[in-house]
Structures are given as structure tokens and as C-alpha cells.
Amino acid sequence: MLTLTSPVDTPLHRLPAGGKLAVLALFTAGLFWITSPLWLTLSLAAVLLLHGLGGAAFARHGLLLLRPLWPFVAVVGLWHLWTGDGIAGISIILRMLAAVAAANLVTMTTRLSDMIAVLETIALPLRPVLPPRRLALAIALVIRFVPVMSERLAQIAEAFRARSPRRAGWRIVAPAALAALDDAERVADALRARGGTE
């Protein structure tokens, strides 16, 4: 399945995933601690500069990932223009953009398998309630069944369209959920057929 990891190889791709996540956590915490617009601007600039390491296409893709934030930028901007406290508004927008861009950068430069390995390490203390193998199996099952169910949903929508002039809309949700329940029973069978979970 498609992941958000960028196919453009950057120097950041070669850094260990755990290290990148630790730096990201510190950086994000720091962003909420500093208030000076100057420092926030520098933080955002630093994150954007790191995007630049990957070249123009990589950086452009990084900016595209920020697009869902524009309604919030607009609302906060207008709000603070209204209240006349523009500096505070700019700080909030800078902080939000820097935090999201930094997090996206880690996602874009870390392979899924490395992320899963970090997650399994983090989950180690939970071993008694959540054995690592069960977690890995659960993750694999979701990745396996998203395309399967996606196809199924398209079939259900087609079956609806074949007998209706309207689009299926929400009416496909119930058959989709039933299909998920049926698939779950079969997956349980397939798991048990090969030894089950301990």
C-alpha cells in the first residue's frame, strides 16, 4: 500500500527513526514553550530548510501536505485582525505550521518498516498485555485488508448503481460493515488454520 514516505532519497532518510522521533518530540514541545515571533519564525525557517535538503520536488510535496491547514490559518488570521492583536495571531500560525511541517518531515523521510520497528520497541513494556507479535499481526492485517475492502466497497457501490438511478451514498455503509464482520470471521478461521494466536 502507498505510504507517505517520500520516494525522493534525502540525507534525512538515513538517520535512525528513533532519533528523528525523539528530536521531533523535543522540537514540538519547544514550540509550545517559546512565544517570541522571531524564534518561531526561525524554527519554521529551519524546518523548511530541512525540506530543501531533499530538493525542489521534495520541498514542494512537503508544502502540499500543509494545505489542509489553510482554513485554520484563515480563521486565526481573520480573528486576530479583528481583535487587532496581529502579532499573537502570527505566532500561533507560525507555531502550527512549524509543528505540522516538522512532523510531516519525519513521516516523509522514514520508511514504514522502520516506524513499525520503533513502535514495537515503544510497546515492549506492554508485553504482558500486548505481545509484540500480536501487534505486528494486527498492523499487517490492516495493511492487507484496506485494499481488499476498498475493492469490496466499489463492488457494493456498483451493485447499488446497477439497480438504482441514484448514487449509493451512505447506503453502502451497512453492507460494508457486514462485509467487514464476515471477513473478520474468515480471517479468524485462516488464523486458526495456521496455528492461531497464543
Binding site: 499487517a140 495493511i143 492487507r144 485462516a190 488454520a193
Partner: peptide
Amino acid sequence: GILFQNPDHQILFPTVEEELAFGLIQM
């Protein structure tokens, strides 16, 4: 061993090698 009628009801893993390795790990 059981060969299910529909492969999509049997395959549990996203990649070929994971699917093949699973049974061995189970053993």
C-alpha cells in the same frame, strides 16, 4: 493444511514473503 476456496480469505499479510513466512513462524 487447509486451502480455502477464496485466496482473499486465506491471505493474511500484505506481502508475499510475510505470507509465506507466517506459517513457519507459527511452527
